[in-house]
Amino acid sequence: MTLQNRSRLFVFIFSFLTWLALTNVRDIEEVVAGLIVAALVTVVAGKFLITSEKSGHILRRIFSAIKYLVKFLWEMMKANLHVAFIVIHPYLPIKPGIVKIKTKLTKDSAITVLTNSITLTPGTLTVDLSPEKNEIYIHWIDVLSTDVGKNTKTIGGKFEKLLTEVFE
């Protein structure tokens, strides 16, 4: 089976299971509708989920993913308290700017998760990705430095290592 077809099969099964979880299945009609919807999703976006051969042991990857999730939720708590603090502060202590960081991740899915995490963590919001997919532009509400190397460490560094273990 080619890589694209494997990706399509995976997307089909995954979206069908999601449909079953979302609908309270009582009749055969709902199952049929689910099959049609899952097929539509597969036709439109089926080939994007898996784009390269897997590497690394699946259990180790799941373990890394759980570690990553815990870290991410913790950072997200901090992000919310940070924004809440800024918003209720009478003088709005902000120093915004758009900075650039570098990333070593190569897979599309890994970069997507990294940029989403950056958006949901303290003070940072992903604006764009460079066409070569190795630089991320980030709007930072409280710019501490403009040095690319230093920013890479403070913004992306905390997730990048774990994400490498999960995806690559």
């Binding site: 992000a79 918003v87 709005l92 915004p96 919001l125 709007h139």
Partner: peptide, 18 residues
């Protein structure tokens, strides 16, 4: 309260998602 569209997006995404 925040000044421009980018800063507002920061508040809107983080707090509203959480």
């Amino acid at each position: 309260r925040l000044p421009d569209v980018y800063n507002r997006l920061q508040a809107a995404t983080k707090c509203v998602t959480f």
